[in-house]
Simulated assay, not measured.
Amino acid sequence: MTSSELWTRATADRYDAEETEMSSAAVLGPTLTFLAELAEDGRALEFAIGTGRVGVPLRERGVPVTGIELSEHMAAVLRRKVDADALPVTIGDMATTVVPGEFSLVYLVYNTITNLLTQDEQVECFRNAARHLAPGGRFVIELGVPPLRFLPPGQVAVPFDVSERHLGFDTFDLVEQILVSHHFTSDGLTSDSSTNGSCTSASATNDSAGGRYRRDSSRHRYAWPAELDLMARIAGLELERRVADWDGTPFVQDSSKHISVWRKPA
């Protein structure tokens, strides 16, 4: 078992409702096109497949998809959408769990590699991807660039969403390379912005002058693109491409996230 925090049943049951923007055609369209092109005529393996936000529609595009998911509750939500014969899912962690066969594509989206809270575990995630890839196959990660440049001296928090229905900010431990994502969400309403794909470690409901709100928080280990490249080299993978989004926008100094593609030598 890795250090990843587990999704609860309550969090899993409300996940899709709270991620409607991330499940929209505008967001998913470029994501699915990007991944389908890399998969070519082969099979795809999604690490931390969750409720199938990406895996289910990618399969509908004709790509055979298999998933690995740590949370049985998240996998249960996925199973309501598609049966096990059509999209098999193995319960386990993305750093050590092995499934049968070879894949032309392994992918890990929505900042989820940060759920592994140590560098060693993140390295093992790369090794596990390489273990599953056929020669010439690709490993894809979607990850935000740590927003440390927005931290004035002495400040430890950076807001990423301030709206009527949701307040989100990250706090940083610069020594341990850990960030904690904090979410305050109005009861009965959904958040449409999130720095990280999970918020599972703490949850509480409180009353305020404006009504009820829910508080959630989760821990993540952030990593820089160059650090991921070194992890890939340790796993025997080579950087093939890095862009700023699923549309292929060039990755530049001011990019807030990156889509990185590493290739297993043929």
Rank of each mutant, 00 (worst) to 15 (best):
P64R: 03
E5L: 08
E37R: 14
V162P: 12
Q253G: 07
E124A: 14
V252F: 04
D85W: 13
G197E: 02
R241T: 11
R9G: 02
D245K: 04
L189I: 00
E5V: 13
A39P: 13
L116F: 02
R61E: 02
E46Q: 06
A235I: 01
S203P: 05
G42K: 15
A223Q: 08
S181I: 03
Y15Q: 01
T200A: 07
G154C: 01
A75V: 06
L228K: 09
L32M: 03
V56C: 09
L78W: 05
F172P: 09
R138C: 14
E40M: 14
D16Y: 00
A204D: 06
G144M: 12
P30H: 03
L133N: 09
S217T: 13
Q177D: 12
S181W: 06
L237Y: 03
G197C: 04
L32Q: 08
A244K: 09
R43W: 14
P265I: 04
D83I: 00
L237E: 05
S217Q: 09
A232R: 05
V106F: 07
D254E: 11
G42H: 15
W246A: 01
R53W: 09
H182Y: 10
V54W: 08
G136R: 12
G236E: 04
T33G: 14
V77M: 03
A39V: 12
T66K: 11
R53K: 07
M74H: 04
G55R: 11
G42Y: 13
S23E: 08
H73P: 10
L228P: 10
T200S: 06
D83N: 13
L28G: 02
D245L: 04
S203R: 14
T90D: 00
F169Y: 15
R131Q: 00
R219C: 06
R79W: 08
V99D: 00
R215S: 10
Y15D: 01
T114C: 10
R149S: 15
S3F: 07
R219M: 09
L151P: 08
R212K: 10
G62M: 06
R149H: 15
D245C: 04
G52P: 05
E21C: 09
T66Q: 13
G136D: 08
A12N: 02
V156D: 15
L108P: 12
A266G: 14
A204C: 02
A12T: 02
Y222V: 01
R214A: 10
R43L: 13
H73D: 15
H182V: 10
L87A: 04
T20G: 05
L87Q: 06
W224F: 13
P57I: 03
S71D: 05
V99E: 00
V180Y: 12
G67T: 01
G168A: 07
Q177W: 08
N111Y: 09
A17C: 05
T249P: 14
R219P: 00
A202H: 12
Y213F: 15
Y15W: 06
L133F: 11
I234A: 08
V252E: 12
G101H: 04
L117G: 08
D192L: 05
S256P: 07
D120I: 07
T190E: 13
T112P: 11
T96I: 00
A134G: 04
V82L: 07
A223T: 14
E164W: 03
T205E: 03
R79L: 10
V123K: 08
S255G: 05
H258F: 15
R212C: 03
N206I: 14
Q177Y: 09
S24E: 00
D173H: 15
S186R: 14
R59V: 02
P250E: 07
S201T: 11
V175I: 13
L239D: 01
A223Y: 02
I113D: 08
